[in-house]
Design a protein around this nucleic acid. Structure first.
Lengths: 107, 107
DNA sequence: CATATTGCTACGATTATTGTAGCGACGGAG
DNA sequence: CTCCGTCGCTACAATAATCGTAGCAATATG
């Protein structure tokens, strides 16, 4: 895919540089929101997280965890196990209301 | 493209039936959050939306619009143009705080 | 008629994700 | 020490999602 040849490909789906676009793009990748959700209460080991995430493949989970770590939302505790950072907890606070909304929404 | 049909949509990434999982999965598809964001103020035609979404391919935009319509978040106005439903506006209200968060987050 | 817009689709090429298997490192038990 | 289990993490081929381009039918305007 060298259509936009010459341009440094920054953030997928967002070449505008606007932070909101980068954030929406990051959270719009598979399992990203789910990971934040599953870590909302307590840290989980990589395998516990995998179990919580419906046995999603470790490949993409590791990819998301790396991205979320680079973004500063998730960290790997020194005793093992992934947990939310302070910033990650703030972000998670914005995802939490979706729970009640989803219950009302059903489908 | 998977048009819905019968009952078991076998929601990707969520076989639990918990609404929050289905919602997180739906919003975790490419351009889904972005579409909600771009429609936050006023309805847009399909092409205006495409322009707003960084010229994303119409294939996936149509797919997301169809899904978001089936979910009851987006509707196609009788004069043309896509807009948020009442439910969609409520959902969008939960996405809006991400803007200020993203500005603080930068990267 | 020509022209431009609407929502929407086909289809090959490219990416992302899946599923399974396994690695090296660390720690506890025997 | 060796054996065993778990940790975070990776390789790899197969599958599904997405991209990019082109174009359709329908509608409206002149």
């Amino acid at each position: 895919m060298a259509k936009q040849a010459g341009q440094t490909r920054s953030v997928r789906g967002s070449r505008s540089g606007r932070p909101i676009m980068a954030l929406l793009d990051l959270l719009g990748r598979r399992w990203a929101l789910r990971i934040l959700w599953e870590l909302r209460e307590a840290p989980l080991t990589s395998r516990a997280l995998r179990t919580a995430c419906d046995e999603a493949s470790p490949t993409v989970l590791q990819a998301r965890l790396t991205e979320l770590r680079e973004a500063g939302f998730v960290e790997l505790g020194d005793g093992g196990g992934y947990g939310l950072t302070t910033l990650g907890r703030e972000l998670c606070e914005m995802v939490m209301p979706l729970h009640r909304f989803a219950e009302r929404w059903k489908r």
